[in-house]
Nucleic acid binder design. Structure first.
Lengths: 289, 289
DNA sequence: GTCGATTACGTATTACGTAACAATT
DNA sequence: AATTGTTACGTAATACGTAATCGAC
């Protein structure tokens, strides 16, 4: 068995070409490297270098040894990476959601009810992908906008969201009590790309080319301020007083403009998340629709 | 970077199941192992064991870590094996020969003229395989029984051998001055398997089923003593006085019963073996045919 | 009481740095 | 002169063994 610190120093020499350069890279002294290289030759019982006066270079055996040493170090690093990654995965709850808003709403409850766990969240537009991910353990929890009627899944409604249409006060629709997707068809509408499944809804109900989709939230926000273009809003934002200045938000009548969110886990893991599900049940009771 | 002595001890524990058994296998004390395992957890920043009172076992992370640790150790061992093997190959001259006798004759000269080298010899019946091996560097030197007329090969005759037929003194052929393969056809003949290309010659000139081939030289020798079966001999043995008691050896007239041996190397390596070739040239001059 | 694991302490190894030296450029 | 590698020596880190302690079967 050859200790890895020797191989590490050996590979560093092979890459730097001289002991002094390598010793700098390794943050050790040159004499220390000299000794290590001799020790490596000693434990292998093999000559690895051409030495003449103040020159040292790999010989043929040394070149081969450097190759294999790299592989041995790679295997070592691979072990470290995999073990640390697996260990982290044990402490992490992966949450997939069909939309960003329910994540914002539930994240503090997650942290409170899953103490010591790291919460990792991801937006996935397609409910089916979320369910698949739940089953293959890519996610421990997913947030759907449909009830999942399967024995293997434990599914609980925990939040509602109503889509609003936001226009400048002087817009021709500003006076209306409510609108339909039909009413706003043909208008160019500003949208943030990161809205999860809502993007699908809007594409279906309106003409995709009318949607001015912004990749970054910053760009979207800037355009909200700088333009009079209509956009979508949500009761969850409005109830917290989030309304762009000089705009009015009007509820959209269509059924598809209303969403119910369902927190879902595997039935087999239901027990581990009991406290969490109890906590979010309170939510929906306070906001009955 | 995790040092290999830790991985070695960790894998030993994974295999033995308890620290005490593992420490015995490793020839270290139990307390030392306890500390090493803690250190391993410390450098990885990860828990690897279930501990309760005087019990310790791998947890899930530990099982995965053991797998990867094994691979890392394997990569390390692989490096050691390959480097040592390559180093040895640099100090070794591999010699292939079409027959055992010329090897015996030349081996002391090889050792004398290739100081510091390990001589590794092998009998290969087929001259073509020897030439191929020379070209792909499996052999540095080969001994052929035909001249190799190629620019890439340097080929020098260095020894002759004459095949004799050895019979008991009271054998019907014992009085003859010489015999031919034709004369001895039909006789059952005792043979050692390890005679190189001579086996091919005998198979061609005689009936293969008449050859009583012995796998081990000991068995062959025993049968020579215990039986009156005829066998082959060689002028090289006879000139040193090797003759089985109560037997007479008669030269075989056929051309195929005479062999010339050619020491051969790659022309590109001729220089490295100049002294050797000069030394064996003396041989053939003393024994002109 | 025995066996297995851990803790505490002393020791021996050894990897490292500093300083001095030798040899090239 | 500046750079590179080696040797000599002292030091600090650390891996190990021994002895003692704790728990469980």
């Amino acid at each position: 068995m050859v200790e890895n610190y020797l191989l590490e120093q050996f590979v560093a020499f092979a890459e730097h070409g001289t002991l002094s350069k390598a010793s700098e890279g390794l943050h050790i002294s040159q004499p220390s490297l000299t000794r290590s290289m001799k020790k490596l030759e000693d434990v292998l019982g093999v000559s690895l270098f051409h030495r003449e006066n103040s020159k040292i270079a790999l010989n043929e055996t040394g070149k081969i040894a450097a190759e294999y040493a790299r592989r041995a170090l790679d295997a070592n690093q691979e072990m470290i990476d995999h073990v640390i990654s697996f260990d982290r995965s044990l402490r992490t709850v992966y949450v997939g959601s069909c939309a960003p808003l329910p994540i914002n709403d539930i994240i503090s409850t997650l942290q409170e009810r899953l103490p010591g766990k790291t919460i990792s969240t991801e937006i996935v537009t397609d409910d089916e992908k979320l369910i698949t991910g739940l089953k293959n353990r890519s996610y421990q929890l997913v947030i759907l906008h449909h009830y999942a009627d399967e024995n293997a899944l434990f599914c609980q409604r925990f939040m509602e969201e109503q889509l609003y249409f936001s226009v400048p006060e002087d817009h021709k629709l500003a006076k209306k009590k409510s609108v339909t997707f039909e009413d706003i068809k043909g208008l160019r509408i500003l949208m943030d790309r990161n809205v999860g499944f809502w993007m699908e809804i809007c594409r279906k109900e309106l003409s995709p080319e009318d949607l001015l989709v912004q990749d970054s939230f910053d760009a979207f926000n800037e355009l909200v301020q700088a333009s009079k273009l209509p956009l979508f809003n949500s009761d969850r934002f409005l109830s917290r007083g989030y309304e762009a200045p000089g705009r009015i938000s009007i509820p959209i009548e269509d059924e598809t403009a209303h969403a119910s969110y369902y927190l879902t886990c595997l039935t087999s893991e239901q027990k581990a998340y009991r406290s969490l599900f109890n906590a979010v049940r309170g939510n929906v009771l306070q906001n009955p629709h």
